[in-house]
Design a protein around this nucleic acid. Structure first.
Lengths: 199, 199, 199, 199
DNA sequence: CATGAATGAGTGTTCATTCAT
DNA sequence: TATGAATGAACACTCATTCAT
């Protein structure tokens, strides 16, 4: 019997190496050889686990999205909606190395998605799940009387999601301009303002 | 006698060809040859006007930024601040072919900027100018009494800019999900809400 | 306890898989992996039975040659020489799937033999045996008075063998041009003419 | 103005290098790098003149066929048909380095043609032209009363072409067995016999 | 100035072979 | 014996760049 290998585990190992390469080099400069070197395996080994380079990169995108999803799912469920909202939205902002890493991956894939339908679908599904999660919390806040009805929950959720997307990008690209403190201040202001009150 | 050519004019011609290539192929798939073909000049000619491929791409980013700046500068000055605010922010949203084109270019450069300081500086300067323009209008609205003081002008401006960045990206990548109508509805809601709740 | 396997039997099994691959893909496109898949064994197994890929291919050539030899040996011995001659020569022509398969294998090895002495020797021995078989029949025809002495038996045999080689190749490559009917007509004409003009 | 290059001439130069590589290495072992080295140009240069490797190889096949055609066309026209027939058929036999070279190329392409329709068409057209040339001479011999009508001209032509194909292959692969002298002897015997007489 | 021929390093990918299990 | 994971060299092809004309 040959060495027993857990295929899915090995795939994850290689995907993580790919993620580190994307973070370090930018997605345009990632090469199969570099991923191989980063992973510690030979370049030919990648062929056992992925049909081609694009498959590895797709795996990296899925991985990044899964990470965010997992972290959000791990949040405590017993918080009041408004507090939870702030916590959930913070998971998409680059406030620590892990989140900076994930957001960097996402940004690297945005331009690609414009030309690669397969990537666009992946991102679309993930974005949809993310938006629905936020919407659910906003609706819970409405039910709990924590947010006014001046705007519909859908409007509030979409505004928040768009705001977080935009502010996260700025925090990533201009960290000296858009510091963590400033981002949190703006996020809280935005939430509080949508919630109708003075923060 | 060498032929007399207007260097700057020719550079712009080539840069525009580069922009069209980026829009069509994605920045990763742009080749010098393709830009040459698109421009109608030979590939060697590009070498006369740009040190290397990256210089062409930098030129394309500058060009895209200049376009937005020019369009904003061209807006009428005598509008009341709140109306002007809506007009200005719409200039950054992909509501027609021209703006879709420019935003596509921007998105293509975001990931690159994470690894190329030269590109980051270009984007930084432009983003700063853009943010200041919005801030100026918000301050004018404050002075005109069109916006409440619950939030500072700086906060409101940054929130709006982040929101527009995020919603523009979504409109670009998921146009079937985030239609122009929906985007305008959300933009107006965000502005109105920041302006005190009366749409 | 190691499993008892019949080495020679297993080798034949693998060689037959190799033959099918050559027929299907052309000898240039045959890979060890493909032979393994075709045989139902793992790629590593081939290494137990053959030193390297070339050894498998040599085995395939031997196999193809053996097939022809076996079929010729199986022909009835009590036919009159001229009838037997036609039957034997037909065994080298692609008139059914089995013969098409064998001739295809041969053609695939011709070019290789020009550069690989080992293959050339295999083909040489087989061709010699084949030529001698034909010569023996022609000589028998001479003795039986079925062929005139205008040409020596050796000349007639060599002419027939060359003709069959050439017409077989054409029938294989241009089957729509050189149909079975046409080939048989030409073969019979050639034999009859060499036999003195009375078909 | 850049260096002026005659494209067709350069293509021929590269094709000839490819032919030499095929002759030397066998078509399976020919690499683009090797052709480049043989031609004296860099590997990238080949891309200027051929879409891909297959295009180069197709060019090599065309070249070999053209060579035979040209040599046949160059034969004197005022010979009597039967003499001409012998001269023409000898052009397809490997009696000198040039003809050995051409026939080697052809043999290298036979197996490929079984799997590559494009190559098959090339060979088909050439074979057809060659067969028609031989047929024309046989018909002239009939008109000149040099050949009997026991067999039709078409039959005689096809028999001769097949014989020459087969004997040429043998002369190429087994030169020590099928020497030039033996081949010429057999060719003359086959012609004379078809012509109805004693040589 | 403009051309496009030429370069050669670098890419993704394939594949015969090796070898621990 | 049999497996299939792993290797790494070799492949065809791409492309930014150089430069003689």
């Amino acid at each position: 019997m040959p060495k027993i290998v857990n295929h899915e585990e090995r795939r994850q190992e290689l995907v993580e190496a790919a993620c580190r390469c994307i973070d370090r080099l930018g997605i345009d400069n990632v090469t199969v050889r570099e991923i191989a070197k980063e992973s510690g395996y030979s370049s030919g080994t990648l062929a056992h686990y992925f049909a081609d380079k694009d498959a590895i990169l797709r795996g990296a995108l899925e991985r990044a999205d899964d990470n965010i999803r997992d972290r959000i799912a791990a949040l405590p469920d017993d918080l009041d909606p408004l507090t939870l909202l702030g916590r959930v939205l913070r998971e998409a902002l680059p406030f620590d190395e892990e989140r900076r890493f994930e957001l960097t991956l996402d940004v690297n894939f945005w331009a690609r998605a414009l030309n690669q339908p397969a990537l666009r679908e992946l991102q679309h599904d993930d974005h949809d799940a993310w938006r629905k999660r936020v919407l659910g919390i906003v609706e819970a806040a409405h039910e709990a009387g924590q947010m006014p009805e001046a705007l519909s929950a859908a409007d509030q959720a979409d505004i928040l999601v768009a705001f977080v997307d935009g502010i996260g990008l700025q925090a990533l690209v201009y960290p000296e301009l858009m510091t963590r403190e400033r981002v949190e201040q703006l996020l809280d202001a935005q939430i509080a303002h949508l919630a109708g009150g003075t923060p």
